[in-house]
């Protein structure tokens, strides 16, 4: 493994551990302002969408909005099933079957 990879891991460890340890280790000396807590509530949707959209519309780096793009169709299926059923594992499985059929059978 290269130094850059170890450095990436080390920084990720710090970024993960400090957040988890925050209150458990440092106790009630920490306090978030309410505005920060409210902003934090929007973080998961914003970050996950920002990750998913480019990967779904341009899996190879080129934008492909056609119905033959398995990443785009699969993502829409995953979202739709989860939206309807609220069952994440089911949504992932169904979308994986659709993705697999488009990817491996086409």
């Amino acid at each position: 493994m290269t130094d850059a990879l170890w450095l990436a891991i080390l920084g990720m460890f710090v970024a993960t551990y400090t957040v988890r340890a925050s209150f458990i280790v440092f106790g009630q000396k920490l306090r978030f302002p309410p505005a920060v807590v409210q902003a934090l509530g929007h973080v998961p949707v914003a970050v996950l969408t920002a990750i998913v959209v480019p990967e779904a519309i341009a899996p190879g780096g080129q934008v492909d909005l056609s119905p033959t793009n398995p990443y785009l169709v699969g993502t829409l299926v995953a979202g739709l099933v989860a939206w309807k059923s609220r069952r994440i594992l089911v949504a992932v499985l169904v979308s994986f079957v659709v993705f697999g059929m488009m990817r491996w059978l086409a």
Binding site: V52, P70, A78, G79, L80, V81, A82, W83, S95, R103
Partner: peptide, 17 residues
């Protein structure tokens, strides 16, 4: 094989509801 799709599908399923 397109295994990276697993992550995208999971995230999409987490956001949608």
């Amino acid at each position: 094989l397109g295994l990276d799709f697993a992550m995208i599908a999971t995230f999409a399923a987490m956001i949608a509801p």
